[in-house]
Every structure is written in structure tokens, then in C-alpha cells.
């Protein structure tokens, strides 16, 4: 009986291995020429929507490696010239700016750059913005009134907000917000702000977790990006949302507009197809596929989102260029000074 059991177990195991290798999990051959390799740090569903539209239009297949944007950038740095990646699409700006600073990215085609306003791409064309999003304050309507919220994000570091503010120090956008404060108010103000948040605030390790924390009443307020609210609302239903968004506006650092960018690896042997993909990302079809899948702002004029976004021309963000907020070393130094890293 026992032997029989064992034999059956071994047979089942052998069967599984057989199925797996028949499905091609054994070492893959080098990708064929018409397959583009995309390292994707953007949310998987968003990218899948765009890639599907791209393949439908061009017939070019896209192989996607998913991961966290910063981890993928670190991986590309370790891979160097031998990187299998053709295009890197990042959720945040800092990883792409780092690759650009190290000279690892090719210049985007002028035709591609012409499709979008110049402030949404690198000055030297090393990367393009694919979508824009803004920093917001998420607040729990049962716990705090809209009128009680401050007119600047700087105030959340004050002692009266003790234990009332959630923030996500590891988020790329939080980092960008800190560097915006450096640019607008100076380094000391930024360090003081970070220290205040460290002492008074509640650290979350992800934006979804922070929005849910507000929704559940763990904390009345959290500093997040606009689209996370829509993700949570989509999951539990708009009518059940106790969490709402406050847009600070009036060029405050709390109203920062940031980009989710993409760039082509210089080491790619498929530059032509990669340029086509980059062009598609900002084409009318590509942008429509994107904004249908995620509550972010299109970078291409004339594309409309089905989500109830606050119109981009009412956001009134600070006048900050991506290059102003791309210094990862400075961001790290600030965080270390504030005891956050």
C-alpha cells in the first residue's frame, strides 16, 4: 500500500515535470528578431493594455519582464551592454533618469518627441513621458473636514498633525516631492519637512496600503498619487469610499505633477522596433489604451480619460522640470539626514 502510494506520488511528480517542459519552460532560445523585450516597472495591467494594442497594429510581439521599477533599473545596470532589454518603461521618473545620466539610453525619434509637449520629455530626448499623475492628499471624510486641511503640504510636518498623516517614503513620487521642496524652499526646509514627517507621521510601505489605511480609518490623511484612489475605489465601489482626494493646487509642492517615463536601451539590437514602440506609446491609439486602463493623465493633447479626473488645467502644479527632481543622490542624502534611510 505504502509502496503504491509512493509510486503514484513519483509518477505524479514526473508527469508535472513533463507537462512543464512540454510547455516550454526549459531554457528559452534567444528571442526572435521581431520580438521586442520590454522591462516593465509600470503596473502590469496598464502595460498589457498598451502592448496588446501595439501588437494588434504592428504585428510585433512584445515579451514583458515585470518587476519593481527601481529593481529593474538595478538589474539593467548589472547587465550593462549585454542587457536583453530593448525598452524600459518605469512607473517613476528616478530610475529612468539614472539610466539616462549613465548614458545607457538612446535618443527618441524626433517624430515621437513632436507628439507631446516639450515639458513631458527629456531635454536631450533620452526618454519620453508616457503618462502624468499628480500628488494629492487622501483624507477620511468621517475623521476630518476638507476645510480643516492645510493650504500647503509643508504643514503636515507640524506637531499638530502628530499621528494623523500617512506617507510612503519609499515611493518615487514622494522622493520627487521632497526634491521639489528643495528646489522651491531650499535644502534645510526639505530636511526639516522630512524630519517632521518622520517624527509625526505614519510610514506605509506602499501607496495602495496608505489609501486603504485612510479608508479604514487607521490615519485621517495620507500623501499619495491621484490614481491610487481610483484603484481602491474600483475595487470596493465608489459609493463605499470614505476616503476622498484633496488637490492642494496654487503651485504648492503638494500639487506636483510627475511623469511615468520610457526609454530605449542603447545596447538594444532592435533600435528600429524599439523606436516604433516608443512612438506608439504616445500615439493616439497608445494613449487611449493607456488612459482607459489607468486613472492617469495622457501626455498627448486631445486624448480623454474615462475616469473622473480633475482636469489637468485646474491642477495648477509648481513649475518644476523632471530634471529638477531627478537627483537620486540628493534625495538619498536628505532621507539619510532625516533618519528615514
Amino acid at each position: 500500500m505504502k509502496n503504491c502510494d509512493r509510486r503514484r506520488f513519483l509518477l505524479a511528480g514526473a508527469g508535472l515535470v513533463g507537462v512543464a517542459s512540454a510547455r516550454g519552460i526549459s531554457p528559452l532560445r534567444a528571442a526572435e528578431n521581431e520580438t521586442l523585450t520590454l522591462y516593465n516597472g509600470q503596473h502590469a495591467e496598464t502595460t498589457a493594455a498598451i502592448v496588446e494594442a501595439f501588437t494588434r497594429e504592428t504585428g510585433v510581439r512584445v515579451a514583458i519582464r515585470r518587476g519593481n521599477s527601481a529593481q529593474l533599473a538595478n538589474q539593467i545596470l548589472e547587465e550593462g551592454d549585454a542587457s536583453p532589454a530593448d525598452v524600459f518603461y518605469s512607473e517613476e521618473i528616478a530610475p529612468v533618469l539614472t539610466l539616462a545620466a549613465r548614458g545607457l539610453l538612446s535618443t527618441a525619434n524626433p517624430d515621437t518627441l513632436k507628439q507631446i509637449p516639450p515639458q513631458f520629455a527629456a531635454k536631450d530626448g533620452a526618454w519620453i513621458g508616457v503618462s502624468a499623475r499628480c500628488r494629492v492628499v487622501a483624507y477620511n471624510t468621517d475623521m476630518i473636514k476638507l476645510e480643516a486641511l492645510p493650504s500647503t503640504v509643508m504643514d503636515f510636518a507640524k506637531p499638530e498633525w502628530r499621528d494623523k498623516v500617512g506617507f510612503v517614503p519609499t515611493s518615487g513620487e514622494f522622493q520627487a516631492q521632497t526634491l521639489t521642496i528643495v528646489k522651491m524652499k531650499g535644502r534645510d526646509a526639505a530636511v526639516a519637512w522630512l524630519k517632521g514627517l518622520k517624527d509625526n507621521g505614519r510610514i506605509y510601505n506602499g501607496n495602495v496600503a496608505a489609501v486603504q489605511g485612510v479608508q479604514r480609518g487607521e490615519v485621517p490623511v495620507a500623501l499619495v498619487n491621484n490614481y491610487y484612489w481610483f484603484r481602491v475605489a474600483e475595487e470596493i465601489g465608489d459609493d463605499k469610499m470614505k476616503c476622498q482626494l484633496y488637490y492642494i493646487g496654487h503651485k504648492d509642492p503638494g500639487a506636483l505633477l510627475t511623469l511615468s517615463p520610457a526609454g530605449i536601451l542603447k545596447s538594444s539590437k532592435r533600435q528600429d522596433i524599439a523606436q516604433r514602440f516608443l512612438g506608439f506609446l504616445v500615439s493616439a491609439a497608445g494613449q487611449q489604451a493607456l488612459v482607459d486602463a489607468v486613472a492617469e493623465y495622457p501626455v498627448r493633447p486631445g486624448v480623454t480619460s474615462p475616469y473622473a479626473l480633475k482636469p489637468i488645467d485646474e491642477l495648477d502644479p509648481p513649475d518644476i522640470t523632471p530634471e529638477d527632481i531627478g537627483d537620486a543622490d540628493l534625495a538619498r542624502a536628505l532621507r539619510r539626514e532625516a533618519g528615514l534611510a
Partner: peptide, 14 residues
């Protein structure tokens, strides 16, 4: 370990 993951979020020389 969480700090190591954070470090890889923030810096790119390891």
C-alpha cells in the same frame, strides 16, 4: 532586509 530593499529603491550603485 527591508532597508536593503529600500536602498535599492533609492540608489543605483548598491
Amino acid at each position: 532586509t527591508t532597508a536593503i530593499f529600500d536602498s535599492y529603491e533609492l540608489e543605483f550603485d548598491g
